[in-house]
Structure formats: C-alpha cells, structure tokens
Amino acid sequence: MAEKPLIKLINICKEYANEEVVTKVLFDINLELQKGEFVAIMGPSGSGKSTLMHIMGFLEKPTSGEYYYKGKKISDLTEDELAGIRNQEVGFIFQAFNLLQRTSVYDNVRLPLVYSDKNIGDEAVEKAIKSVGLYHRKDNLSNQLSGGEKQRVAIARSLVNQPEIIFADEPTGNLDSKSGKQIMEILQSLNEEGKTIVLVTHEKYTAEHARRIIKIIDGKIVDDFKVKHQLLAKNENDLTK
C-alpha cells in the first residue's frame, strides 16, 4: 500500500474580498507532497505561489477545497489549533529573515520553544545553531550579522522544534550569490537528512536546486515535474572556494 502523502490539496481555491472587489488568487489547486521531498514552487510575482505556501504552511485558510496533512483534514481547524501545528510541525524561512532586533542569535533561535508544549531542552538550540555553522556567534546580536548569517540563524530557528517540513519563501532573495549558495547547500543537506522542504522562488536557477518543480502562473499549476539534473550547491560552493 502506498504511503499516505504528507500534504494533499484537493481543489484548493483562495480569494481575497473587500467591499468593492473580489480577487481570486488560487484556482482549483490539486497537489500531493510526499515526506522527504524537496519541492520548488516557481512562478512570477503575483502568481499565487506565496499564497499557496501560506496555505500549506497553516498560515492561511483556503476559501474552498480540502487540505489533508498526514491524512488529517485541517481546513476546519481553529486559529489556535493551526498555531499549534505551525509550532510543532513546520519551520519557516522568510526572504526578509524576520529576526528579532537587538536580540542574540541564541534567543532568536530559541523563540519557537517559548510557544512550544514539546519538552525540548536548550541543547536543541545549540544543536540547531551548530548545524548552520554559527555556534561561534551565538551570543552576537542579530543586527551584528551579515545577510547570509541572518538567514542561517533563521534556518536554525526553523529547525529548533524538529519540524516535519520546512517552508522557505524566497530564502536567497535578499542575499548575494555566494551567501545564497550557502543557504541552498544547507537546505539540500537538511533534505538529505530526511526533512521535507518546500521552496518558493521566482528564479529558475534557484528552483533547480530542488528535486521537483511545480510551476504556477495566475493561480493555476501549469507544470509539475521532477528535476533531471538537480544543481548541487555543495559542488558550486566547492568550485567557488
């Protein structure tokens, strides 16, 4: 028997309405994601790729359609229940890093544990910081770091709760190419270790670091394929060195 998909979306639609106009962003999205996949959702600005990630990441509810996570229907859950799932099951990496200002690397990484019911000790914080190679800077304040380092802190923060799946929304968008490659290398090694990764990007080059690419245009999936020649950031970084 085939394993249950980690994420299953059936006819997901999303629209935003105000008093004057209704804007449809997603149309009948049907999608399955297996545990351990590295998927890039690719599309131009305004295509709805971030909205799709927000729905998959429990940050937003779809207007219609059904969402199953590990076989459990989650479209009917309350705001607080969704917050619980976000805390336990997923990690987020944002384009703008979203670190707490004037707060140490350590405390930034520890933040998800503040809201967690899991009994995870502070050693998990150190482990997460070590995994992104920033242990020597754990006491530095976030505003003392470079862009690449900030994004690595954000990755460590997304890992601290030992999530099932990591959502990365344009994680290299604000970085130079060297830092961007370092980030991609970390994401690829996390995927090697078994983490499911969903990467949102508008760049073909970045998307080709994933194993599967889902193209989305005007709120509809127009292509969904396995990457034949996955770019390996580690090799690129070795070449740079």
Binding site: G84, N98, L111
Partner: peptide, 13 residues
C-alpha cells in the same frame, strides 16, 4: 512584523 513572526512560529492569540 515581530508579532507576525511570533504567530507564524506558533504563538497563540
């Protein structure tokens, strides 16, 4: 943005 982040990583209302 900080509040948004906290909610994204699981802070309840």
């Amino acid at each position: 943005r900080e509040i948004g982040l906290c909610k994204a990583i699981g802070a309840k209302n």
